[in-house]
Design a binder for these strands. Structure first.
Lengths: 157, 157
DNA sequence: TATTGTTATACTCTATAACTATA
DNA sequence: TATAGTTATAGAGTATAACAATA
């Protein structure tokens, strides 16, 4: 039920802008914190940790587990444990690749896809984004953020 | 020195938009992840954990430790430990409030202020934000994000 | 020999609960 | 009695290192 997410702006608001104050970085970090919290709660409703939910989403691209580790910014050992848990729940399956039998490719099961969809749908509906902004503004925001995401990414291996 | 921050869009890009795909939430979460990583590295350069850096920044508003705990989304016990460490390093001082001697108000020392400024300045300079967007776009983005941040915040205690 | 993934171990982070002092 | 903060303990999360199988 999506807790208040107190960012205590009541007292934060009275400080004047400063380098770390009301810059875009500051704003984005705060909004992101809120969204992260929302995501955590939605994941919890499905009995998942935030990292498991992120893993599930990332698995749509069918990465190797090593690649998944980089995407999640954790170690391969951790990925191994996480995918194992997700497999036990029937959300993913791990099958050895035919071209290289060392790698085990993890794929979403239909149920796994369903969970990803469900979380995504609720995130879109429940987030501050959809509440505070109109359609046009939302599209503008997405465009700006995608520019950020695509640019300045040194490594595309 | 600000790692590549691989988000593996090389393969992510080929999936078509879906509820959790290229929505604003998705985009903002990804950008936020990048910024969070940047912040973590900048903090590390000063020998601080990300949470310590966030605490330092939040302390500009001179909150009680309880209020600080809510702002950082952690328990008062944790705040106690963190402010203790920061005090040992000479970045903050904790003095008992005169009006209520149970509360110890934490304040930044000049050196603490300096660290906050330094991190903030580098964050503004180093982040994807300033690299990818022009001034006008940046202002627009800030405006949109602040709208998000101000709205939809159920509790203002 | 190098690489993918797994398991075992240890360490770090964070919370819960018990405690002290003030209100 | 209730509240702000601290300390002690326990639990979750995460990484490092040793291992197995394949390349």
């Amino acid at each position: 039920m999506l807790e208040p997410m107190d960012t205590t702006p009541g007292s934060a608001e009275r400080s004047e802008p400063s380098p770390l104050g009301r810059t875009a970085g500051e704003a984005i970090l705060r909004v992101a914190q809120r969204l992260t919290d929302v995501l955590a709660e939605l994941a919890a409703e499905h009995g998942l940790t935030p990292l498991q939910a992120r893993a599930l989403r990332a698995l749509r691209d069918r990465p190797s587990q090593g690649r998944l580790a980089r995407a999640l910014r954790c170690t391969p050992s951790r990925v191994s444990l996480i995918t194992g848990e997700l497999e036990e729940r029937g959300l993913v399956t791990r099958v050895p690749s035919r071209s290289d039998r060392r790698v085990r490719v993890a794929r979403l099961t239909p149920e796994g896809e369903q969970v990803v969809e469900a979380i995504g749908a609720r995130l879109a509906r429940e987030s501050p984004l959809t509440h505070a902004l109109g359609h046009e503004e939302l599209r503008l925001l997405i465009a700006l953020l995608n520019r950020l995401d695509d640019a300045d990414d040194p490594a595309h291996p």
